[in-house]
Amino acid sequence: MSEIAEKVKAIIIDKLGVEASEVTPEASFTNDLGADSLDTVELIMEFEKEFNVSIPDDQAENIGTVGQAISYLEEHAK
């Protein structure tokens, strides 16, 4: 797993209070990991801070699973 993927997983585990085993690429933040709309906003903000990127709202809407977050950040992280 890439360094970015590791960091993304760690952030999700910390912010959503879930077990590492639940954080699979297919796992949906809201449907599988118990996030509500505010949790999702907080996650996006943490990704922005950790990877020094700015994720526009229209693109943030497309980041709904662990895998989608990892791919987006692998593409955009500086």
């Binding site: 505010l38 906003v41 907080e42 903000m45 922005e48 801070k49």
Partner: peptide, 9 residues
């Protein structure tokens, strides 16, 4: 501005 979404609530 990087205010946390939980800040106001």
């Amino acid at each position: 501005p990087r205010f946390n979404p939980f800040f106001i609530p």
